[in-house]
Design a protein around this nucleic acid. Structure first.
Lengths: 203, 203
DNA sequence: TTCGCAAACAGAATAGTATTCTGTTAAGAA
DNA sequence: TTCTTAACAGAATACTATTCTGTTTGCGAA
């Protein structure tokens, strides 16, 4: 299970065993019943542990959300960076962004589904600042890459619009796929989504 | 206040006065504090009413969410239909979809913000079926319009992808604007978003 | 090996919030 | 006017997150 390896990379070692188990079962609960409908008791039952243990490790429900959310975000970001490295032209950068995103979602649908659900909670809660910093960081990396491959003047829309133009359609389709509204895997449309994004940013 | 006129159209008459007031204050609470953090007591206090009255009109918190959500969806849909009527070519259809969406969001930011927040709750809750039916209806209207203006063969991507390609970027940017991540009004980028959508669906 | 101690756990007690229930008032039909 | 039902009020209930208190376990130092 990819869920386990993602967790082991972020919470390694034998000591963190229960911590990982709680996160794993919480992720399952959140995806099956929704975040709000999932009770601490339900998570407790699935882990055969106690509320004390859960609160010891995470402080509160929000803490569980945060741990899961940033674990997913980190993995997604690594994936993104890995794709971006190989891009040498502006067009390849755009393709990297779209394809890395689509690939990650298809590879980890449970994490992606959770990420969509949890984002609004995170934005309101105490982890907002951390999310903002990571977004700023990714944004900066992308901007630098754009500068590195040069010829950014070939792009018509203002930079403020670019992230939405590049990733908007893919995000929308992935969300539809994760919720079952469409059947075809985003992976099958990867190239089409990427080339559509590329066309969309050209004047 | 546009919030009031939207509510009066859907819940008209003197008898529904308190009902509208509850919805109005609930909308404000949800946008200020978030849906989960808003308590029935807080809404009660702002309306100077009682929990009994609230539960009499809406059954439960979910009922308030549903009433607000579908009120917003209806208004948005009317707006959409009105724009779509005037489109005579395929390109104009795409522009109508994007511009009607962007205009509505900018015109009713509080309703739009709430809509984004509430969608996941609705999808999980008992109103899911109703939302699904409305989406199907809109989807069908769009498909018929596409057929009516003909020349749909000029479009490269499969129909399954089209909604995401057309509205994805705009939705993404509007969401960013409503949460304060970007400053420039989507209205200012309306034409650019529309033409980007149009380029993106061409082979 | 043992001692000290902090982290890891368990489960009862508490607090806050949604929901229900019972009763009262007001409005419209007959 | 009377009768019926919707509209409202507020206390009582139930559920769930969180806290608190106590116990156990792992680990470094003596």
């Amino acid at each position: 299970m990819s869920e386990i390896s993602i967790l082991e990379r972020r919470f390694p070692g034998r000591r963190a065993g229960l911590k990982r188990e709680i996160l794993l079962q919480a992720l399952a609960c959140f995806n099956e019943s929704g975040i709000e409908a999932t009770t601490i008791d339900a998570i407790k039952a699935r882990c055969e542990t106690s509320v004390g243990a859960i609160y010891h490790h995470f402080g509160n429900k929000e803490g569980i959300l945060g741990a899961l959310f940033f674990t997913a975000l980190d993995d997604q970001h690594e994936h993104f960076v890995h794709y971006l490295e190989r891009a040498g032209t502006l067009e390849e950068v755009v393709f990297s962004v779209v394809l890395s995103y689509v690939d990650w979602v298809v590879k980890h649908p449970d994490w992606a589904r959770f990420q969509f659900q949890a984002r609004s909670s995170i934005v309101k809660g105490p982890h907002y600042q951390e999310l903002k910093e990571r977004n700023t960081k990714t944004y900066r990396e992308l901007k630098e890459k754009f500068a590195a491959v040069g010829s950014a003047q070939k792009i018509a829309p203002p930079f403020e619009l670019l992230p939405s133009l590049i990733i908007g359609a893919s995000e929308n389709y992935c969300r539809a796929w994760l919720s079952g509204r469409v059947q075809t895997s985003p992976k099958a449309y990867g190239e089409q989504l990427a080339s559509a994004a590329w066309r969309s940013i050209q004047g």
